[in-house]
């Protein structure tokens, strides 16, 4: 879909959050001079096209007790990265999994996944079980636990 000027305004208006009132799309429409049903249709279209990945809540995992947050990085031979990436992504404990470029010589890792848990021991146990169940014993990896969070906000567009 092509985003028109009204879509752009709509995107800018809701990126901070949806109105917390009974008919939020009608309220957005009032602010933009659009009909409620048009707002609903445009948002649906944006979601179908994947411009909006989803609507809903974004939690602060730290405040919810998920205080151990590990980025696990693997140095997977290029010809295996597809298979290993898909396999890791199927595990419930893996919340994100991406292939990224190596930055040699300092950074040999090309597969990144995030694992969140209520404490470090649990996270390390998850990783051990990943290695075992996917036979990754020969794949070098490192676990980067997060220390302080300096900043967390949604990306801003427009």
């Amino acid at each position: 879909m092509v985003l028109n000027a009204q879509d752009q305004k709509l995107i800018a208006l809701i990126q901070g959050g949806l109105p917390l009132s009974s008919r939020p799309y009608a309220e957005l429409g009032r602010q933009l001079g659009m009909a409620e049903e048009t707002v609903i249709q445009r948002i649906r279209n944006m979601q179908e096209d994947g411009i909006i990945k989803r609507m809903g809540i974004v939690v602060r995992h730290h405040e919810l007790g998920y205080t151990a947050n590990a980025m696990v990085v693997w140095d997977v031979p290029d010809e295996q990265v597809q298979r290993v990436g898909e396999a890791l992504g199927r595990h419930a404990c893996v919340t994100l999994c991406y292939q990224r470029p190596r930055r040699l010589p300092d950074w040999p890792y090309n597969l990144f996944c995030m694992i969140h848990g209520k404490d470090r021991e649990r996270v390390l146990n998850y990783i051990e079980s990943l290695v075992e169940s996917e036979n990754l014993q020969d794949i070098p990896y490192e676990v980067l636990f997060s220390g302080r969070r300096f900043k967390q906000r949604g990306a801003k567009y427009l």
Binding site: G16, L18, G50, R54, V59
Partner: peptide, 14 residues
């Protein structure tokens, strides 16, 4: 406990 309530945009598709 919630950081936001609304859309998650796909940066590249935007």
């Amino acid at each position: 406990r919630l950081s936001r309530f609304g859309p998650m945009y796909h940066a590249e598709r935007m």
